[in-house]
Simulated scan of single mutants.
Amino acid sequence: MNSSLKVLMNLSKVQAVISRRFDRLNIHGIGFNDFMVLYLLQQSADEKMRRIDLADKIGVTASGITRMLLPMEKIGLLTRETNERDARVSYVVLTPAGKQLFEDAEKTAKILAEEIIPAGKSKNMNLLSDLLIRLGGDIT
């Protein structure tokens, strides 16, 4: 088996392990993907993004992002906004409740991240980060 394939298989396993560890976000009523949505929205201008841009950033399809956002909209973490100039464009907007939940969940997420990658163990972090960006992991 070639080394590239092994790296990708190990990367897939690491992703599964990380997702399982971040299941602890469920104490806030959200999953890891929900957390990523809230993170991206709170980082964006006016705390809103086009649905298609959000899907692209997370790495899901347009229908996938719709399925992901519906429960978050139902519980008031997000809302929809249409573009006044182009009705085909819709935005996902972070609500005050979503912002508060993100701030609470971020504390838990930082603790989990520190458990997964302790500060002293991040010697090759820039190298790993560069590789992940080249593979499409461009969440900033």
Rank of each mutant, 00 (worst) to 15 (best):
M1N: 08
S4E: 13
K6T: 15
L8A: 04
M9S: 09
N10G: 14
N10D: 15
N10T: 07
S12C: 07
S12I: 01
K13P: 06
Q15A: 12
Q15C: 06
A16L: 12
A16I: 09
S19H: 11
S19Y: 08
S19D: 13
S19Q: 13
R20D: 14
R20Q: 13
R21F: 01
R24V: 00
L25T: 04
L25R: 01
H28F: 10
H28C: 05
G29M: 05
G29T: 03
G31D: 00
G31S: 00
N33T: 09
F35G: 00
M36K: 09
L38Q: 04
Y39C: 10
L40F: 13
L40R: 11
L40P: 03
L41A: 07
L41S: 06
Q42S: 11
A45E: 15
D46H: 12
D46T: 11
K48E: 07
M49H: 05
R50D: 09
R51V: 08
D53G: 03
D53E: 15
L54N: 02
D56P: 01
D56C: 00
D56R: 13
I58R: 02
A62N: 13
S63E: 14
S63H: 05
I65L: 08
I65P: 02
R67C: 09
L69C: 13
P71Q: 08
P71I: 04
P71W: 05
M72N: 01
M72K: 03
M72R: 01
I75M: 13
G76S: 08
G76P: 00
L77E: 07
L77I: 02
T79F: 00
E81P: 05
T82Y: 10
E84R: 01
R85K: 11
A87W: 13
V89F: 10
S90I: 12
V92S: 11
T95C: 09
T95H: 08
A97N: 12
F102L: 10
F102N: 00
F102Y: 15
E103H: 12
A105I: 06
A105D: 06
A109F: 10
L112V: 04
E114R: 03
E114Y: 07
E115V: 05
I116Q: 00
P118R: 04
G120P: 04
K121V: 04
K123F: 14
M125F: 15
L128H: 06
S129F: 11
D130K: 09
L131N: 05
L131E: 14
G136Q: 08
G136W: 03
G136F: 04
D138E: 15
T140P: 10
T140F: 08
